[in-house]
Design a protein around this nucleic acid. Structure first.
Lengths: 203, 203
DNA sequence: AATATAAACGGACTTTACCCCGCTTCGGTG
DNA sequence: CACCGAAGCGGGGTAAAGTCCGTTTATATT
């Protein structure tokens, strides 16, 4: 008999204690970030505060960046839901050009909000988190196509627009980390740039 | 009497042995990279192979990324000379739109060539090297202005175009590091995307 | 040439990410 | 309910970045 309906799903589900520990570690990490900032979250420190072994932390998240990726994940998923199924103009239904513009602004705001964690989620060696960039990329490509942009190098352009959108916040813009005042100016600044880029591109 | 003609130049020049050691460390680093790849260049390893103390390595370069920044620097300077003073269309004299397109392709090729080192030059915490990005940015902004692009958010757009140009190679695209076959396809791929982006933007 | 001093040097020390592996616990099975 | 195998756990061990500080050395000055 099959062990499960799905022939080759995951070999086995995650054990209950493992799930519990993951949750606990994530909320402990959130506390530490709130109290002392991202930089002070070390693997040993996290393990000790959570009353777990260091090995466990690594087993759960693989790498330090993995913790921040996991933290980002929940919010990221929520963001995606708004994009894929929420009300227009961010969600489906509106004019594709408008959606692109709004998507960019929303994404910039999202990355600003999660700036410290998003940067900490970058892994020095591996190229880029996961769904993160590629979903932006997919969405941008789709909307460009819907907007009637016909270029042979659409793929390249989609990659580059993704970089244009996320790169400044991930790579170039500095932010003092700790007690940062909101700086909403940057959001507008980059948002206006993005809008100009998209509108000229889709003319 | 003044110590020197320059009233407040650097307080003192770099000592001769310091210069010698810097050179020696850089060429040793180049050797190690050629033999075993970027990842195998450690501070201790480099110091030992160069027969110097570890403290010296740090004093010279500040951080591991600093070594790679220094290695990049010479080539970067050469690249800049071509851009600022070389023959058109990369250098001055040609139509600004054409220069933008050519600049992008050249920059992509440059980053492909120096991919491993350029990535290693990224510092996890600090935002971005120095002249590197900002020169791209300045140049792009200047050429856009010359091309008659009139938008209020020109600054934002210049930042984003820089990210579009350099981001994919620094952030998103994977490359196996060691014995990589040239992959000239990527150069074309991104180059075509860039060209499409610029041509549509400057219409 | 002798000297004073700032710069440079070396290497031990600290911190932190990540690995390893023997022991424990969960949870499915007869 | 007792058993068993796999998944999970713990924490000591390793490697590498970066810091510190006492010692050495280049160079400007007299």
């Amino acid at each position: 008999m099959d062990r499960s309906v799905v022939p080759f799903g995951k070999p086995r589900a995650e054990r209950a204690d493992a799930v519990r520990n993951r949750e606990h570690l994530l909320s402990t990490a959130r506390e530490m970030i709130a109290e002392q900032g991202v930089a002070k979250v070390t693997m040993d420190g996290l393990a000790e505060r959570a009353c777990l072994g260091k090995g466990t932390v690594f087993r759960r998240f693989g790498t330090r960046a993995g913790i921040f990726r996991a933290l980002l994940d929940a919010d990221e998923r929520h963001f995606q839901e708004q994009v894929l199924g929420g009300p227009p103009p961010l969600g489906p239904g509106a004019d594709p050009v408008e959606r692109l513009v709004v998507y960019g602004r929303a994404r910039i705001a999202f990355l600003m909000d999660h700036h410290a964690i998003a940067r900490a989620a970058l892994d020095r060696d591996r190229p880029i988190p996961f769904g993160d960039a590629s979903l932006s990329q997919l969405h941008i490509r789709t909307l460009l196509a819907q907007a009637g942009v016909r270029i042979p190098s659409l793929n390249g352009v989609a990659i580059q627009l993704t970089a244009a959108l996320e790169g400044p916040l991930l790579l170039y813009l500095r932010r003092p980390e700790a007690g940062t005042p909101p700086e909403p100016e940057v959001v507008e600044f980059l948002g206006d740039g993005w809008q100009a880029l998209i509108e000229r591109l889709t003319r």
